[in-house]
Design a protein around this nucleic acid. Structure first.
Length: 316
RNA sequence: GGGGGUGCGCCGGAGUAGGAGAGCCGGGCCAGACUGUAAAUCUGGUGUCUCUGACUGAAUAGGUUCGAGUCCUAUCACCCCCA
């Protein structure tokens, strides 16, 4: 495997050419490319391990780099904002310095927490009021504040603030939510353009396609997102419990609508089979908690199927 | 050798001053779940059988009693004290 080159703390703007599409599979829609980011290049298709609170759980940084070969990892705006807190990270000089990870990073905006913490939040046009899952304190996330926090965290790629809808989701609500996400995207874009990275490099803002499992909504949302002409386009609101066939159908439809020359990021996917299938549909980037969570829960994917390594029969 | 105490589930603990147990809590084990992480978490199972219901079961063997895990006798095992 080729080692991704590195340009730590690169001050120069990497320019509009963030992505080189190297090849397309003639028998599927699978692609190979290189994504150029301030902290190095990333080979796509890529799986990005999730380190919600700034660290990939149960894996040492060294293992993550040397054995796992991770080229980019995730962090989460909501969780980092609550703990250790945005100011702490900013004082450290950004998340890269805070956790000593000098390769690319991406932060999710907190949009997933609109879904996963739905019991303790309220959505309004302005933004989302969250009750902290740690101490119950009240916090407001808006498209603008989500960008501000992500500026302070300093990831190479930052995500638009969206609503990840649950499954199943009524069409009426899915429509309303999609439009809200679109309006929030416009605010994110404006705020992103009006601000700069705090640590001497550009941060790419990625918009997110929503629309639940409704083809016409997905198409409409994909067209809207594509019209923004951002360097990376993301697909959200999938892998939330819908049948795989629906997930593939939506992914396929959206991939066919999004531009060819930009990386496509399918958020929250998935199982090994999901990933292979979606690569063949044209997805370039993935993230999922499944490998780390399942590993912590003693579940291994093997060539002979799933193994629960903690079971007595696997012990010596 | 003498005295005292304790014995039920795979393990540990709780409980029972004769009156409803396949039965409390924890662990282990077995199975399942987990998809932009409120998750080293959660759910279910864990005596036997011909399984919508039965049967057996409180160290072992007897006894008292309408009724015994509980009381009595003997035996066995373990723990404590004395010699």
């Amino acid at each position: 495997m080729r080692k991704a080159s590195r340009s730590i703390g690169a001050k120069e703007d990497v320019g509009s050419n963030h992505f080189d599409l190297l090849g397309v599979d003639p028998s599927s829609k699978a692609r190979a490319g290189i994504l150029h980011l301030p902290h190095g290049d990333v080979e796509t298709p890529i799986f990005m391990p999730v380190g919600t609170a700034g660290t990939v759980k149960a894996v040492h940084q060294q293992e993550l780099k040397d054995q796992v070969g991770a080229q980019i990892i995730l962090g989460n705006t909501y969780h980092l904002y609550l703990r250790p807190g945005t100011e702490v990270i900013q004082k450290a000089g950004g998340l890269h310095k805070f956790n000593n990870w000098n390769l690319p990073m991406l932060t999710d905006s907190g949009g997933y927490q609109v879904y996963s913490l739905s019991k303790q939040r309220k959505i309004k046009e302005e933004g989302v009021k969250f009750r902290s899952h740690i101490d119950g304190s009240l916090h407001v996330f808006t498209p603008e504040s989500a960008i501000d926090i992500q500026r302070k965290i300093g990831a190479d790629i930052i995500m638009a603030f969206d609503e990840c809808t649950p499954y199943p989701c009524e069409e009426k609500y899915a429509t309303k939510s999609m439009h809200l996400t679109h309006r929030w995207l416009d605010r994110c874009l404006t705020h992103h353009e009006g601000t700069t990275g705090l640590y001497g490099y550009d941060q790419i803002l990625a918009p997110i396609v929503q629309g639940s499992t409704y083809p016409h909504l997905r198409k409409q949302s994909a067209e809207y997102i594509a019209s923004k002409e951002m360097p990376i386009n993301a697909i959200g609101g999938l892998s939330v419990g819908e049948p795989h066939e629906e997930m593939y159908a939506m992914t396929s439809l959206v991939c066919d609508t999004l531009p060819q020359d930009k990386p496509r990021y399918l958020m929250g996917v998935g199982t090994p089979a999901n990933i292979l299938e979606c690569i063949s549909l044209g997805i370039d980037m993935f993230d999922c908690v499944l490998p780390t969570r399942n590993a912590r829960h003693g579940l291994l994917y093997t060539s002979r199927g799933i193994v629960h390594i903690r079971n007595e029969k696997w012990k010596q």
